[in-house]
Amino acid sequence: MITLYDYELSGNCYKLRLLMNILSVAYQSEDVDFYPGRQHKSDWFLKINPLGQLPVLVDDGLVLRDAQAILVYLASRYDTSGKWYPRDKPTLLGQIAMWLAFADSITATASAARLQIAMFFDIDGDKARSGAHALFRVLDEHLWFGEQEGRDWLCNGDHPTIADIACFPYVALSEDGGISRQDYPAIRRWLDRVKRIRGFIVMSGIFPAAVAA
């Protein structure tokens, strides 16, 4: 049985719950009290991840940290369709890696702004928000041209990939950090599309989309 070291309000933990639900992968959650307990910096947790960060996934003796790395692993091992991380398509793999790195930048900005506002972290919130807006402009432009070209997702092809799952949570939670999405209409439509993926689940602060059928 897979164990996910998990925190309910973490977008990076949520993206793993989301992909595992989409792929119908069974797992158990080990709750780590990130805020206010700071258990991710406790002695027992640092033995599991010396970086003191969530999430961590343990599967069959393999211990993995870093949400994006875990998405790669889960899709490679458990996605029987081969579409979420298409190992035989170099173009897509390159694009996916690019957006996984982008997801880390979103964590460093939009998620940081949310930590500052909602969990009182000592972070320069204005700098984080302005960094997030710069990223969201890039993302909105990419998605708008995607719509013009008939592409619904971050990467080429007609199926979402782990890149969409990686970037989704902290974009969808940005308003918790004081980052409005009013100026990003193509992002708002993409959020709806992700929410309509079969197997989609929510977390606190993320609402389902209207059924569009």
């Binding site: 999405r181 009013q182 209409p185 708002r188 439509r189 709806d192 989309a209 569009a212």
Partner: peptide
Amino acid sequence: VAASTDLPKRHVFHGQLLGEE
């Protein structure tokens, strides 16, 4: 206040005009 293509089926667009959301 929006392009027609900004309003796909079952979507709600967030706009603003003269301060009015």
